[in-house]
């Protein structure tokens, strides 16, 4: 249970090796969370990482197999009881050039980045509604706020996810469960290795800090950094002719 000062107890991270996801979990544990489930592909059998003083469980989870997602949520509940924070942090970035050449790969990436989130999100929501509390932290992206020519396969999946998350949050309104949508800009990390930095980029740690602050204040949408909110207020209304010439 989340306590009076916003400290949570049990956390489920889907995409258990995600840098941003782990950075969020580490901070939640530092603030007092005691039970963690890390769900990822071929997770079981390995040694769970040490995260502060929390008890850490591993769970097998394949984002591309929605038929298994219900069991994953049930298994997590069996391990730690009520889920206070659920963080679906899995995803693939890929390059637009590769997707242009390989539409099958593009469809598979979208199935994970959007479809996988829809299915796990709905299953998590069912549980959170039943227990009457808990927050789903959805890692969206500014790439989905207005989709760019430079990465429209990835961007369109994020656009779908962002819309799904907002709709889910509205559907859960009044149930005690909540959805928090996180919109980072360019995040420096494993996922973006070798790419040139974009303006207003952030580190996984900075994204995690913003998520923690958002959880504490019951925010519905968190931009990282906050300045992006302002920037995208302008970007959203830029004429199409200019927008399509954005270099990246």
């Amino acid at each position: 249970m989340k306590n009076a000062l916003g400290t949570v107890d049990a956390v489920l991270l889907l995409g258990g090796r995600s840098e941003i996801g782990l950075a969020i979990v580490e901070r939640l544990v530092r603030d007092g969370a005691r039970r963690v489930v890390l769900a990822s592909r071929d997770a079981t059998g390995g040694e769970p990482p040490v995260i502060g003083e929390a008890e850490v469980h591993l769970l097998d989870f394949d984002a591309s197999r929605p038929e298994t997602h219900g069991e994953v949520i049930d298994a997590a509940v069996k391990l730690v009881g009520d889920l206070d924070v659920v963080i679906p942090a899995f995803g693939v970035l890929g390059s637009q050039a590769v997707y242009d050449a390989d539409p099958v790969a593009a469809a598979e990436a979208v199935a994970v980045n959007y479809g996988g989130h829809v299915s796990i999100g709905l299953h998590a929501a069912r549980r959170l509604r039943e227990q009457g509390h808990g927050t789903i932290v959805v890692l969206s992206s500014v790439a989905g706020v207005r989709v760019r020519r430079a990465n429209f396969v990835y961007g369109s999946a994020k656009a779908g996810l962002d819309g799904f998350a907002q709709g889910l949050g509205d559907a859960l309104h009044g149930s005690g469960a909540r959805v928090m949508v996180v919109r980072p800009g360019f995040v420096i990390g494993r996922m973006t290795e070798g790419m040139t930095l974009a303006p207003l980029s952030s580190t996984p740690g900075q994204v995690a800090d913003a998520v923690i602050a958002g959880l504490r204040s019951d925010a519905e949408i968190v931009w990282v950094p906050g300045l992006l909110k302002l920037m995208f207020a302008v970007m959203r209304v830029l004429p199409r002719a200019i927008w399509r010439k954005m270099p990246r």
Binding site: M1, K2, N3, A4, L5, G132, H133, G174, G176
Partner: peptide
């Protein structure tokens, strides 16, 4: 469902 808190008015949760 009704949202309830204690006297400190923190951490509301719904219940029948």
């Amino acid at each position: 469902m009704t949202f309830l808190t204690g006297w400190g008015r923190t951490a509301p949760t719904p219940a029948r």
